[in-house]
């Protein structure tokens, strides 16, 4: 009877120093797969390695030997004795290995539930192993299924919906204020990291006009160049605020850069056209009272985090639906396959 075995670690079971050591980069992967195939006990093998997890899936006739090979392989690869790394790994077999894989593909096991990358990474790992002729009927079937489950969860639940990072939350909000971003202008005050990231996301969603203001003009010019934008002197920000639909402020000024009175003046000048203010500064750059002005929408870092939290909660409740899909798919897949018995006591989940 064939056994599917999984030896792996992830962000929950191991700290980053260990995950780094266990990581198989693109270039190392080929050799690693070849190395695994050398083991007599291992019939089929596949390595899924991302920054948050490294998982080795094998199919073997001999459970005990198969497992021994896996330990041998990973301790050699990490150049650490088995005894030292044992505590970071989990071992799952047959049904449990498959259920785990389905969860991973459904991004239920991800650090950020519902993130979209993992399904692509599972696919890549699968294609890579198939190219190298490392797969047989068993791993082929479960990975095929896993990719289907991943897609199913994505289409049938809202697990990937809702921004969960500051910069994407800002994009999501701007799309609920503005009908289209293409004819909108964004003014960024200060050259902070999150600010830059937000502008980058905005321009990938269609924003064409980017204006950058910074105390040091050189920095503003550098940033403006990256987005084919325009750099302006810090003193002139009020002339440009009138023209901008989205203003991102991330300066380290000790006082408000934009007061409520400024915002009110700007609104009169722009005939009440909606204005989205994003305050990424710490201490805050924009007077919170500006939010009370009609057609002004002000979000600071905490507000954006609150949006992310709400979305995350939404994702968690969607995750329950996703888990049900995964469970039913595991049952279905089990019927298709002829797997070895599952010994619960051998399955260690940390």
């Amino acid at each position: 009877m064939m056994n599917i075995q999984l030896l792996g670690l992830n962000h929950k079971s191991a700290p980053i120093e260990i995950r780094e050591k266990a990581f198989f980069s693109e270039s190392k992967l080929e050799a690693a797969l070849a190395g695994l195939k050398e083991y007599k006990a291992i019939e089929e093998c596949l390595i899924l390695s991302t920054c948050n997890r490294t998982e080795i899936y094998v199919a073997s006739f001999d459970r005990v030997n198969g497992l021994g090979c896996l330990w041998d392989f990973i301790s050699r690869s990490m150049a650490m004795p088995e005894s030292q790394i044992k505590k970071y790994f989990y071992i799952l077999e047959n049904k449990f290995a498959m259920a785990h894989l389905f969860q991973v593909a459904a991004s239920l096991d991800s650090m950020i539930i519902g993130e979209t990358q993992i399904l692509g990474q599972v696919k890549d790992a699968y294609f890579r192993a198939r190219e190298k002729n490392c797969l047989g009927r068993n791993l082929n079937t479960i990975f095929d299924e896993a990719i289907r489950v991943g897609k199913k969860v994505r289409t049938q639940t809202q697990i990937g919906k809702g921004a969960i990072s500051t910069s994407t939350a800002a994009i999501e909000l701007s799309r609920k204020i503005f009908e289209s971003l293409e004819d909108k202008k964004v003014l960024i005050i200060g050259a902070g990291k999150i600010g830059e990231l937000t502008v980058k996301n905005l321009s990938s969603r269609g924003i064409k006009t980017v204006i950058v203001a910074n105390r040091t003009l050189i920095k503003a010019q550098e940033l403006a160049e990256r987005f084919c934008g325009e750099a302006i002197k810090f003193e002139n920000i009020f002339d440009y605020m009138r023209l901008s639909d989205i203003i991102i402020s991330s300066t380290s000024a000790p006082h408000f850069v934009i007061t409520a009175a400024d915002a009110a003046k700007v609104m009169r000048a722009r005939n009440n056209a909606p204005l989205f203010l994003i305050d990424l500064g710490l201490p805050r750059n924009i007077d919170p009272a500006a939010n009370a002005i009609e057609n002004v929408y002000l979000y600071n870092i905490d507000d954006l985090a609150q949006v992310c939290d709400a979305n995350l909660n939404q994702r968690r409740s969607e995750a329950q639906k996703a888990q049900q899909i995964v469970d039913s798919c595991v049952e279905l897949a089990l019927k298709k396959m002829n797997l070895g018995g599952t010994r619960q006591e051998e399955s260690i989940i940390k």
């Binding site: 919906k161 809702g162 909000l173 799309r175 609920k176 204020i177 503005f178 009908e179 909606p274 939010n291 929408y297 979000y299 507000d303 609150q306 949006v307 709400a310 979305n311």
Partner: peptide, 25 residues
């Protein structure tokens, strides 16, 4: 939609309603 955006409390309707600009237009 405006109320949700102003109060920064986002619930199930937020994703389902179109952009403010669209509704206004």
């Amino acid at each position: 939609q405006e109320k949700e955006l102003k109060s920064r409390k986002i619930d199930v309707f937020f994703f389902r309603l179109p952009a403010l600009e669209f509704l206004d237009r």
